[in-house]
């Protein structure tokens, strides 16, 4: 049986090591590896790469599951308000949203500030972040805005807590 050349072998190595080659091709590659140290070395390197990427896997942090079911519970109370649910249990995003909400509120001051969670959601609904891109855009308002929003006396936190402006 004719033996496979180096170039072909190296093209097939990746799929072979993934166990995705038909068995006859796998055998041909293996035969070549048995007599070619260069391609064997190549195979070793690919195995090593696979191993280190695999090891980069990690587990979810403790408490994330609870955070998720918490915010899911919130969505359930107000099914239309998906962003608000995120905001409720997603501090970082909430900070961004709060920052963006400040913009919205500065532009369109609300006469009656939301005082209940449901009304708060309504405020968030106005923002209607449908995509990560929009969220990113809100994030790009920058640190100052987010810092402002995070401060206890921050504009929107004030409003969210039901206080007067």
């Amino acid at each position: 049986m004719s033996t496979m050349d180096c170039l072909t072998t190296q093209k097939l190595l990746s799929a072979m090591l993934d166990g995705e080659l038909p068995s006859d091709l796998t055998r041909s590659v293996e035969r070549h590896l048995n007599q070619c140290s260069r391609c064997t070395e190549e195979a070793e390197e690919l195995r090593f790469l696979s191993a280190i990427v695999r090891e980069a896997g990690t587990r979810a942090p403790v408490g994330l599951g609870a955070r998720i079911s918490c915010s899911a519970r919130d969505t359930q109370q107000s099914p239309a308000s998906w962003t608000a649910a995120l905001a409720a249990a997603w501090p970082r995003a909430a900070a961004v949203l709060v920052g963006a909400a400040s913009v919205a509120l500065i532009s369109f001051p609300l006469r009656s500030a939301p005082s209940s969670p449901v009304e708060t959601r309504t405020t968030f609904n106005l923002l209607a972040f449908e995509s990560q891109a929009e969220l990113d855009l809100a994030g790009s308002f920058g640190e100052d805005f987010q810092a402002l929003a995070r401060r206890p006396e921050g504009l929107l936190l004030h409003i969210l807590s039901g206080g007067e402006r």
Binding site: A60, L64, R67, I68, S71, A72, T75, W82, A85, L86, A89, W90, R92, A93, Q132
Partner: peptide, 8 residues
């Protein structure tokens, strides 16, 4: 955040 969004 991404994991939370996926599950939600």
């Amino acid at each position: 955040d991404a994991t939370q969004e996926v599950f939600l």
